[in-house]
Amino acid sequence: MTIVRYIKNPNSLARKIAAPGGKKVSAAVADAETELSEMTPAGLEAIDACIAIIAASVVRTSETPPSAETLEAVYQAASAVHGSAAVFGLRDLGEAAWSLCELIDTGGGALRSGMAAISSHLDSLRLLRLGEALTPEQRRELLDGLQDLRLHTKQEAAAG
């Protein structure tokens, strides 16, 4: 039987956040959005650097099975893109990056036999980085294609 012990916890955040002063919630959100928009050029540069890391990994391992370290490096770079792309107006790029993370997490042995699925994701990342240059339909089509690829790779991995 699990013994449960309840502990009454002080919460200084509650007291301080309700103190007189501060700003309106709507103004706080607007000010934060302004702060983020000022980061956009640097943010996009960082995203490009992450895509370059993925590209370098694909080129380096095009003829040999990728190592766990390579896959982790690609995962980390894709994760960084996923975390920031939507913040800078590139939501679809973020989705594609999430797809790449998911592919690596679930692809298992099927991925180690080659980088083709990752390479396809890289192509999509590069296209989606163009943002509004693609129509919403084109962007959706790319993302749907990545989803199919991911599911196929997952099934391959499950089949061993």
């Binding site: 002063g21 309106k24 919630v25």
Partner: peptide, 9 residues
């Protein structure tokens, strides 16, 4: 959205 928050301290 019309409420106030204070993160000063």
């Amino acid at each position: 959205l019309n409420g106030f928050i204070n993160l000063d301290k």
